[in-house]
Design a protein around this nucleic acid. Structure first.
Length: 478
RNA sequence: GUCCCCAUCGUCUAGGCUGGUCUAGGACACCAGGUUUUCAUCCUGGUAACAGGGGUUCAAAUCCCCUUGGGGACGCCA
């Protein structure tokens, strides 16, 4: 299929979860239909756009495993792909609109605009532009220009039948023209606004499908009107429901982590994160939930998109991340863990095969990549810590003490004893079993109440370390 | 305020368009049991929802209307 989808972020910050989902849906659609995905940088807001932000967004998109066929970093036939580099194109189109009387100069000052806005609001009407400058004579316009009065260019929304948006996810949505004010398409500094740049670019870049957030739905009639004025065919539109926080408000920093980068740092696997995000507003026909990228591309389709907003919550994400971690090969797991381990471990000083054995043990239980760095403390001599709860519980239980004393003795007599023999001897000498036997053993060995299987932990501990730990716990609880 | 969108378990959702097979299914979380002489994984089971009201119909989660609630837009932001 020769469809052309696009993802058009504005580089004014990091990649947010909701925007990431929009990007993913566009990518999935493009790949599903063997079509093209275009990345366009919407940096018409000179104040807020930064190159760093563009770089960060691209990096996050790549982390998610997305790629694109045309864009500022990969080029393409419809470039440049940054709106800041397309000024002449917008200016040409401005002239076209002015000539067709589909746009006009507006000399109203921000103060005037604010005043009429407030008046309309107090009357209970939609605060749209009142059209004051619509019928300025050419002579008057020239005079004002000669006086160097600042002006903007507005699009003229002519009276007419309602504008109908035939939306891929919402169906037919009608907008009366009366509620659409004449909107600004060029600022007083001569730069285009989003409305104009978006329409011109979507057309020039031959975009066939505009899949974007719900917050753009009410921009759509404006864009259709502009397309009509230019004589362009409007692309198909699809408006995705918002991603909300736990309080049902638009997801933001107040809700905690809301950017892709933060989840990367927290130790989520990108494929799991992508899988999870896809399920926010889309479901597979087979009702499967764990779907790798290949399956996702195969199964994804626009007609299973939901139209109601979803709340971004992490408990299922955690579970899913754990599932993905368990599916990883040991090599892959090690590769993903490296950046996290490097933070507090000099990897060059650590025996790689030992580390891999530790990872193998931990892989069966952790939910996040960062959980490993935490659990790793169990295996390291100088990071070992005894939890307060462990001390408390051991101190109040005489049987626990009994086990520890026996344990210390066994290890003293036979420092090289293996786990099976240790277990047997311990049971013989204390006549205890089950939790009474294993809990104190676990507490001494790991310093924690939770952790991996003891039989697997013991052989990976430094030599003579267990004896030291037993004695330490004994000392701290006496 | 006005316009637009949305409304199924706590959360993600199936079902809705094409009304009956829905005493509403799955997943996460939670709870209980099991496996593991410990922890986790894992397995089994359980609690839990069609926002409210009217209508259409033999029959409504499904279609229509109203109310309520939520969201978005109304910018020389995108």
């Amino acid at each position: 299929m020769n469809y052309r989808f696009r993802y058009a972020p504005s580089p004014t910050g990091v990649l947010h979860v909701g925007n990431a989902r929009t990007a993913i849906f566009n990518w999935l659609l493009a790949r599903h239909y063997s079509s093209k995905l275009i990345l366009r940088i919407e940096d018409t807001d000179k104040e807020r756009s930064t190159p760093e932000s563009e770089k960060a967004i691209i990096e996050d998109l790549k982390w998610l495993g997305l790629d694109w066929d045309e864009g500022p970093d990969v080029g393409g036939d419809c470039g440049p792909y940054r709106q800041s580099q397309r000024s002449s194109l917008y200016e040409e189109h401005q002239k076209l609109l002015l000539e067709k009387k589909a746009a006009y100069e507006c000399f109203c000052t921000p103060d005037e605009l604010k005043k009429t806005r407030e008046e309309l609001l107090s009357l209970g009407k939609m605060p749209k532009y009142n059209g004051k400058c619509l019928n300025l004579s050419p002579k008057h316009i020239q005079e004002l220009k000669d006086q160097k009065k600042p002006f903007v260019i507005r699009f003229y929304v002519k009276p007419g039948p309602p504008v109908v948006v035939d939306d891929i996810v919402r169906g037919t949505v009608k907008f009366e023209r009366e509620v659409i004010g004449d909107f600004v398409i060029f600022r007083s500094d001569g730069g285009p606004t989003y409305q104009l740049a978006c329409v011109v670019d979507d057309s020039l870049m031959k975009i066939t499908h505009v899949i974007r957030g719900d917050d753009h739905l009410s921009n759509t009639p404006k864009q259709i009107l502009m397309n009509d004025a230019f004589g362009f065919t409007s692309p198909k539109f699809g408006h995705l429901p918002m991603v909300l926080g736990a309080d049902r408000k638009k997801l933001s920093k107040r809700h905690g982590a809301c950017s892709v980068g933060e989840y990367k740092q927290q130790g989520y696997v990108s494929s799991a994160f992508l899988n999870f995000l896809v399920l926010l507003g889309w479901s597979c026909e087979t009702s499967e939930e764990i779907l790798n990228t290949e399956r996702l591309i195969k199964e994804f389709s626009e007609d299973r998109l939901s139209s109601s907003p979803s709340i971004f919550e992490t408990n299922k994400l955690d579970w899913m991340n754990g599932q993905y971690i368990r599916q990883l090969s040991l090599e892959e797991f090690y590769r993903l863990e490296r950046p996290f381990l490097e933070k507090d471990l000099a990897l060059s000083q650590v025996d790689e095969s030992w580390l891999k054995q530790v990872l193998k043990v931990l892989q069966t239980s952790v939910a996040k990549l960062t959980d490993v760095t935490d659990q790793l403390q169990i295996f390291l001599k100088d990071k070992f810590l005894i939890e307060d709860d462990v001390i408390k519980e051991t101190a109040k239980d005489l049987d626990f003490k009994k086990v520890l004393i026996a344990l210390s003795k066994i290890l003293e007599d036979n420092p090289d004893i293996d786990f099976d023999d240790l277990k047997k001897q311990l049971q013989n000498e204390t006549s205890l079993k089950g939790k009474k036997l294993f809990h104190p053993l676990r507490y001494a060995m790991t310093g924690r109440k939770n952790g991996p299987e003891l039989a697997l932990v013991m052989p990976l501990l430094p030599k003579n370390e267990l004896k030291l730990r037993v004695d330490k716990l004994l000392k701290e609880t006496s």
